[in-house]
């Protein structure tokens, strides 16, 4: 009895101690970030007036640019849509090959590392490389989105495929199903809802990320974000901001409805 009690107390202390260590380390890290960045908080106070003037210049928004802004938002939408479409095709192929239950380790392990590496490269960097490779316009944007999102989508697809219970497919084997029939009547019903959910999630991310593609000349609304802000046309930037907010909210609503319909 007594020994049991003392061990449980000691275990308690250990966890308290490790909790303190974690908090202290995180605190030290934040402090270091602040000190090393050499931030002059005085500037924040002084800038109060400037932020006021800035907001003042944003209103009223200049609605004359609405057609331009809507058209380039649609271009961003098209870039995200086509980029996602290409990514789905790539991810279906790579996802099957990267699934532990489908291919031997010498195929699925390097593929998983490759996908992790792709995920680690920021979209803006990919976009700059694509612009260098194929020139300005929506095409490098589409390619960048396709490449960038395959890192995540193929991983999700592989995980969905790995989640298929092997017994379910063995039963179809036993009934004499062909390989394609097993995919169609066994694997597909089991993974389809997951694949659709993952794809929608990635599409939403692609849309948000595609907003910045124009900054490096890879098409879409990003070009106007940069132009209006750099040239101090804040009333036009205001219109742009409102359009983007409406756009993102609409996509989120749509995604919500589709996700609720799946189950």
């Amino acid at each position: 009895m007594q020994t049991e009690q003392s061990t449980s107390v000691r275990r308690h202390r250990t966890s308290d101690w490790s909790g303190f260590m974690v908090s202290a380390s995180v605190g030290a890290l934040v402090l270091w970030a602040y000190v090393a960045s050499d931030i002059d908080t005085g500037r924040l106070a002084e800038s109060g007036g400037r932020i006021g003037a800035f907001l003042d210049r944003m209103f009223p928004p200049d609605w004359s640019v609405l057609p331009t802004v809507v058209e380039s938002s649609l271009e961003t939408f098209r870039i995200a849509l086509l980029g996602t479409a290409v990514s789905i095709v790539l991810s279906l192929i790579l996802g099957v090959l990267a699934a532990r239950t489908v291919t031997p380790p010498f195929i699925h392990l390097p593929l998983k590392w490759l996908l992790a590496a792709i995920r680690a490269i920021p979209l803006i960097l990919v976009a700059m490389l694509m612009v260098g490779a194929v020139g300005l316009g929506p095409l490098p944007g589409i390619l960048a989105i396709a490449f960038h999102s395959t890192g995540m989508l193929a991983k999700f697809y592989a995980e969905a495929i790995e989640g298929i219970p092997s017994g379910s497919l063995a039963a179809l084997d036993s009934a004499g199903a062909t390989w394609v029939q097993k995919l169609r009547f066994g694997a597909w019903p089991l993974v389809a809802p997951d694949l659709v959910r993952d794809t929608l999630f990635r599409f939403e991310l692609n849309l948000r990320e595609a907003l910045v593609l124009g900054l490096v000349g890879a098409g879409g609304i990003g070009f106007y974000i940069q132009t209006y802000v750099r040239t101090f046309q804040y009333d036009k930037a205001a219109t742009l901001t409102i359009v983007i907010i409406v756009f993102v909210v609409l996509i989120e609503l749509l995604n919500h409805v589709v996700r609720a319909a799946l189950k």
């Binding site: 036993s174 009934a175 009547f185 019903p189 089991l190």
Partner: peptide, 14 residues
């Protein structure tokens, strides 16, 4: 040859 599996092995979402 038909086989009834011990753990049924059904397609759960069908």
């Amino acid at each position: 040859i038909g086989f009834v599996f011990q753990e049924y092995a059904l397609i759960e979402r069908s």
